[in-house]
């Protein structure tokens, strides 16, 4: 852990990404303290006002403070990112370790299923399910999670295939450990590093998908603020209110960029082949 931190520290971009991610957490946590107004407070006399001293990022089409809404929107982004990725990671680990550990027919069937899931445009799949279960923040989290575990499954399977032949696994089996115990206690911990890197990168794409869905009106439903649905108002008022389009998008960009930088930095730090060169 200490070694990891030492290697990560030498990569300024990864550190910057990490700091930004931390800041986002704090912002989301302290949104009620930081927000100058109530996110749902409607001020009919200040509609679509450009950024000013009272409203640092302007107001939206029904007079709500954009900065306050964006601070609360950070909560949605983080929640969706983490819950969706947690679901995807758990499902992916389950499928990947079953396929990798048992091999044979189970492996072939599961990997075929992964191929099928990968060959349907994921946005189509997500929208179809949303059409049946309805759009809400909870449904979005679950649906994004259940449509993005395939990469994790492939990753874990590949790790398991090589781990399966290692002495310590064979030893555990010779000692009579159960399959479940071998998978959970002996193999999984050794396969976790790439899964963690992948999870960080997946948060970035989950944030992107959530904001796209909310922008289309099929994600987080107003009045609950999300960066995506603030942008919907931005599009409707694009000819008069540039601030409604600019700031929420910038927030998404910075968030996604931070997770990507942190993820790539972690990957380099965990990759033994790159240790010597640094």
């Amino acid at each position: 852990m200490f070694l990891l931190w030492q290697r990560l520290r030498k990569n300024p971009l990864a550190v910057a990404g990490g700091v930004m991610v931390l800041l986002l957490f704090l912002v989301a946590l302290f949104a009620p303290v930081l927000a100058p107004y109530e996110p749902d407070y409607i001020d009919r006399y200040h509609i679509l006002e450009p950024p000013s001293r009272e409203h640092l990022l302007g107001t939206d089409d029904i007079g709500r403070d954009v900065l306050s809404r964006m601070l609360y929107g950070a909560r949605v982004s983080l929640a969706v990112g983490f819950v969706a990725v947690a679901i995807a990671t758990v499902v992916g680990i389950a499928v990947g370790s079953l396929a990798g550990y048992y091999g044979g027919l189970i492996d072939r069937l599961l990997m075929r299923f992964v191929d099928i899931m990968l060959s349907i445009p994921s946005l189509f799949l997500i929208l179809s399910v949303i059409a049946f279960v309805g759009a809400s923040i909870w449904n979005i989290m679950v649906v994004i999670g259940l449509t993005s575990w395939m990469g994790v499954a492939r990753l874990v399977r590949a790790e398991f295939l090589s781990l399966k032949q290692r002495e310590f696994v064979l030893a555990a089996r010779a000692l009579g450990a159960s399959d479940l115990r071998i998978i959970l206690r002996h193999m999984l911990p050794n396969a976790l590093a790439p899964v963690i890197v992948n999870a960080v990168l997946m948060v970035a794409s989950a944030v992107l998908v959530e904001s796209s869905l909310s922008f289309l009106g099929l994600g987080v439903q107003p009045p609950q603020p999300s960066w995506g649905n603030i942008l919907t108002a931005g599009k409707a008022n694009i000819e008069i209110a540039w601030w409604l389009s600019l700031f929420p998008g910038l927030a998404i960009l910075i968030t996604v960029l931070s997770y990507n930088l942190l993820g790539e930095g972690l990957r380099d730090a965990l990759d033994p082949r790159l240790w010597q060169s640094r």
Binding site: S212, G234, S245, G249, L253
Partner: peptide, 8 residues
């Protein structure tokens, strides 16, 4: 985000 690029 693609849709944001489109808006810009």
């Amino acid at each position: 985000p693609g849709f944001w690029l489109a808006l810009l």
